[in-house]
Write a protein that binds this DNA or RNA. Structure first.
Lengths: 189, 189, 189, 189
DNA sequence: TATGAATGAGTCTTCATTCAT
DNA sequence: TATGAATGAAGACTCATTCAT
């Protein structure tokens, strides 16, 4: 079952939700098709599980970054991580972003805000760092930084060019370094 | 037939490519299903036509903006246009961006670079403006600006919050205004 | 499409609703499976159509019987018709009765009263005859007569014995003949 | 295991054989699904067990009625029992009758006459009472009485009207009372 | 003896595409 | 040129049944 959600997260990211069949995921996880339904009543449930998997990855990552003492270093490390994933982004886009875009179309009423939740996790964490840096406009900055990440991933993917990630990553790092921070001393709080 | 491509562009944007059936488009265009195949051999052809429709919209827009004498004004007007479309973006995302993301998954080999082309049209036009402004890093700036647009559209859509467009649009405008431009006098070339 | 509803009515009666697949019906009607869905969006719709088909048969029959001048003769002819169908009843039960019993279980909420409607058509027609015969308890008599029909069909089917239909039919005929009727002269109104 | 057959009898009656899954029955009996197969090799075996359960109920009932000295009283008490069950009949039909109708469709060859057996048990017992009453046409009368029961149950169920059971029960009671019996004195034999 | 998990055949339904007219 | 109908290849989901423990 862990194999299932892991396989689902990967295959759904690569092929997209609509193009992925339950059989695809079952194959990737090396389980019989019928067995999938023992753990997930519907395809949507499986998609949610994949979403949670991505949320878990994100939690792991931010947990790791939280060890760094300086919020600015954390943000720069986050950006560095994005750049490290440039080949995946150029090939398949950002997992969270593409999933969110697809899930948005998937349920007529658009009640399914689950996808937004993972992105909000990232926004919240980033906003928290900016706040620690003493920025009162922390939430806006978070939108800017995460937006830049989503945008560069989308462009890298559409143009199939990983170097976009590298160049934009460098720019974001410079931007972070140049960003005026709040009360001196607040940074190491 | 023009009705068809127009309907296709709209419905595909709203529902996504995979969730949209030929019948949906035929309905929206108020033509019989069979008739669609008189003009478009396959669904993919129709999707391409919708893509061209979006490219046409973009050409119309840039053609309009080109009337402005100042490249900086053109770029700021472009951003203003994005903000004007904020409700649509918050509901369905950027047409070009979401289509590109979907089409990327649609053909296994990824041969279908058509989607990237429309985005590249925008990048080229924006890059051209920056070049006119005397920026030697015009292409990078174009990536940054268009990337910011795609990113803010995606976030606005995922969070269903059009205000994200407003706030980020304002930031981009400030950013454009603050951007050091090249040799004085080059601006009006 | 007429072929479809006719085939559906027959096959559903013979095999039962739950045991009959869409493919079974498509086969019987000699149309491809997919085509069924051009006319009927769901299996339930097809079942309803089969029900209407039976209602139509009933209407044809009562229309025929209405030509007889005497209500008593009409009722006796109705019973004679039941007996004529004894082999079918012994093999598959009464179409309306078995369908009603099955449909009753088919929709959780039991909202599906369609099945009851066909039976009520028969009850109403029979009740009308008794009323013409001057019986003030016409509705009760209708329940008794139609109930006897349903009961003898069920027993004939369960015991696989068509003769049950014959014997009970004879008894019902005697019962009708012995039934005190209302004001003399009312019979031919 | 007794819990299992009891649960099976009830759930199968309420939902119908085809609509009832093994899991439904396991749930109702509060045993794990796998456990069901420890006692019953197949679903059909479980259905047979449910049938036996109903046969047992019938045996209990007739055993009870046999205590009455007068066969006519026994039959009238039988009818009274039917009327007492009117709400269940209006909601789910007669257990034996609906099961018989369903099982008839269940096995292609129709070899499965098990369902008929339970009904025959009832017919035999009723026929025995009529015989004790000195009626040489006891078997026919049994068919009439049991048929009336099945018919009124089906109508009550189809029309969701328990009062049908009440009215027809009253009629059957009058009919029994009016029935000419055989040699005086034979009644208490 | 007991059971949670596994399995795969079968069923409904959708939909791109074709075709006769 | 136009179109209602036809077609069949998937795909999601169900469920009786088996099995390892």
């Amino acid at each position: 079952m862990r194999r299932l959600t892991a396989a689902a997260a990967q295959v759904l990211h690569r092929q997209g939700v609509e193009r992925t069949t339950i059989a695809d995921i079952a194959d990737a996880a090396d389980v019989p098709v019928g067995n999938v339904y023992y753990y997930f009543k519907t395809k949507d449930d499986l998609v949610q599980a994949a979403l949670s998997e991505h949320a878990g990855h994100l939690a792991d990552l931010t947990g790791e970054l939280d060890r760094l003492p300086d919020p600015l270093d954390r943000l720069k490390a986050l950006v560095a991580g994005w750049v490290d994933q440039r080949d995946m982004a150029a090939r398949y886009g950002c997992p969270t972003g593409t999933l969110a875009a697809e899930l948005d179309k998937r349920s007529e009423g658009g009640i399914d805000v689950e996808a937004g939740k993972v992105i909000r996790l990232l926004l919240d964490w980033v906003g928290h760092q900016f706040r620690e840096l003493g920025r009162s406009d922390a939430d806006d900055l978070a939108i800017t930084l995460v937006g830049a990440y989503q945008g560069m991933s989308l462009l890298a993917n559409a143009l199939r060019d990983p170097e976009i990630m590298t160049r934009e990553g460098a720019r974001l790092t410079r931007w972070l370094d140049a960003l005026p921070t709040g009360t001196p001393g607040a940074r190491h709080s």
